[in-house]
């Protein structure tokens, strides 16, 4: 089985992925209480979370190439649904409700070809 190139590639890919995940735990296992590690543990997760939001919205563009309002899946539906999620969450503090409402709104807008 290991002579099959498909399996070799899968195995290498699995090991490389695991290596990036386990590296800090192996290299810094004795340093978990170092003030710098605690500092990163406190401030990095919120920063990563907002970066993931920015990444998810990276393709947003309000206008199409022809200067029309963009109603496609990277246009107004994306930003409107995001604002709905944020607004609902600030208002009701119910994570699942915000996510489900926002996702349904987005799906309806991109599937039905939402227009003003």
């Amino acid at each position: 089985m290991l002579s099959d190139p498909v399996w070799q590639l899968i195995l290498v890919c699995a090991l490389a992925t695991f290596a990036t995940r386990i590296l800090p735990f192996v290299a810094l296992s004795k340093q978990a209480d170092h003030p710098l590690i605690l500092h990163l543990g406190r401030y990095l997760p919120p920063a990563v979370m907002l970066i993931l939001v920015i990444y998810a919205l990276r393709d947003f563009s309000p206008l199409t190439a022809g200067w029309q309002l963009n109603m496609g899946d990277n246009g107004l539906p994306l930003i409107l649904a995001s604002l709905l999620v944020a607004g609902m969450h600030v208002w009701r503090h119910n994570a699942l409700l915000s996510i489900v409402l926002g996702t349904v709104a987005y799906m309806v807008m991109v599937q039905l070809g939402w227009s003003v």
Binding site: M49, V53, L78, A81, V85, A86, I99, G102, T103, M107
Partner: peptide, 15 residues
Amino acid sequence: QGIEFALTALFIVLT
């Protein structure tokens, strides 16, 4: 179509 927006919504809520 569009259901993967759930992950974007999750990141917004967690932020």
